[in-house]
Amino acid sequence: MPKISHRAEILPLSPIRKLTPYAEKAVKEGKTIYHLNIGQPDIKTPEIAVQAVKDFTPEVLEYTKSQGVDSLREKVVGYYAKHDISIDKDDLIITCGGSEALIYVVATVANADDEIIIPEPYYANYISFSEAFDAVCVPITSSFDNNFALPPIEEFEKKITSKTKAFLICNPGNPTGYLYSKEEILQLAAIAKKHDLFLIFDEVYREFVYDGASHYSIMQVQGIEQNAIMIDSVSKRFSMCGARIGWVVSKNKQVLKSVLKFAQARLSPPTYSQIAAERAFDVPETYFTEVIDEYTKRRKVLIEELQKVEGVRVSMPKGAFYCIAELPVKNAEDFCIWLLDKYALNNETVMLAPAEGFYATKGLGYNQVRIAYVLKEEKIVRAISILREALKQYNKN
């Protein structure tokens, strides 16, 4: 039998999706599952985006430009201008989702065995994207006790070696919900400039900030234009995860030229999705106000309900729509599987994402889960009530 590559063998399963077979089995058994495991918003996709696709009836569905249609790129430029970010359309390349953008960026900046420093816990696919190109993720651990704030900048300096090529930061963070401050970003920018490193910022959750805070973009930092690379997407912003439209932004022309080579190899982004994405940017500002108001309520309900559960500790997210919770169990993955495979309360159960897969450092995250508050308030209340009873039963056993 032919042998697959070492790269394919070592690539980790997604901690977000690895329990899907258990969920499918539970559904077949007639159970209702409350999905708190994945960042799939239930907010309605803007109708104008859906209608734009319905209205597009070409005789021939042609390839578009590899870097994306100009009209969409111009809409993205206009969007950023409203947020005090100055770019032009030649500073960005449209990709098939933020994931493809990250893949192309990692492939562009890192050779085999080069190192990318990432605060952990982090979005699990960062490992997959890096290992696919034989790059090495170097974790720097942030603490549950301070809501996963940026570790001391001195710790970053200690991790830098001759093989270090970049810092990779998600702001606001997935899975922690941490929102990096302007001061923290400027600290990272200074050390990246000092050591001539790339600063890759994943800003797909930039809209989702709470408590009167504001998002500060890496593209707003002066003097690091050749270091800064931003990843963004319509997926969360407009509840269009299935559209698979994202982009890379950088003032570094060598980076963009290289990313374009990868984009040309896959020919072009999907036409219909670009049409929907372009039209989505025409939503009124009230759309975002209403969405953030909704997530603010959901966050409040989730945190309050979790704090009522004996033995549970929960971090306070400042952005995105995730939080990390510590459960009174030794192995959260075993508990999450048990929830789907063995447990139900009135034929209902809950699906969570074990947090171990969001860490690179062995031994961390074993009793933690990531929770996505992407359900309506009443469903969140019900889900946490099921979790409360499930923990009692699990610990009895």
Rank of each mutant, 00 (worst) to 15 (best):
R7P: 02
E9F: 13
E9D: 10
E9G: 06
I10A: 09
I10R: 12
I10D: 01
L11A: 15
P12K: 07
L13F: 05
L13T: 14
L13R: 09
L13Y: 05
S14Y: 06
P15T: 09
I16F: 05
R17C: 10
K18L: 10
K18T: 08
K18E: 14
L19F: 05
L19E: 00
T20A: 13
P21Q: 04
P21I: 07
Y22E: 10
Y22K: 05
Y22S: 07
E24Q: 06
K25S: 11
A26L: 02
K28S: 13
E29D: 12
G30P: 02
G30W: 05
K31S: 05
K31Y: 04
K31E: 03
T32P: 00
I33F: 07
Y34D: 03
H35K: 08
H35P: 11
H35N: 14
H35C: 01
H35Y: 11
L36D: 05
G39K: 09
Q40C: 14
Q40S: 15
Q40T: 14
P41V: 06
P41H: 07
I43K: 05
K44A: 15
T45A: 10
T45K: 03
T45G: 01
P46C: 12
P46H: 11
E47Y: 11
E47D: 13
E47T: 08
I48A: 06
A49K: 01
Q51P: 02
A52L: 12
V53K: 08
K54W: 08
D55L: 12
F56L: 12
P58Q: 03
P58I: 12
V60F: 15
V60S: 14
L61T: 11
L61K: 14
L61G: 04
E62K: 10
E62A: 12
E62L: 14
T64Q: 07
T64I: 14
K65M: 12
Q67Y: 09
Q67S: 10
G68R: 06
G68C: 00
V69W: 06
V69R: 15
D70Y: 12
D70M: 13
D70Q: 14
S71M: 08
L72W: 03
L72H: 05
E74Y: 07
V76E: 00
V77T: 10
V77M: 06
G78D: 14
G78P: 00
Y80A: 03
A81E: 13
A81D: 14
A81C: 05
K82P: 01
K82C: 04
H83A: 09
D84K: 13
D84V: 04
I85D: 04
I85V: 13
I85H: 08
S86L: 11
S86Y: 13
S86E: 13
D88G: 11
D88L: 00
K89E: 12
D90T: 10
D90C: 02
D90Q: 12
D90W: 00
D91I: 01
I93W: 07
I94C: 03
T95V: 11
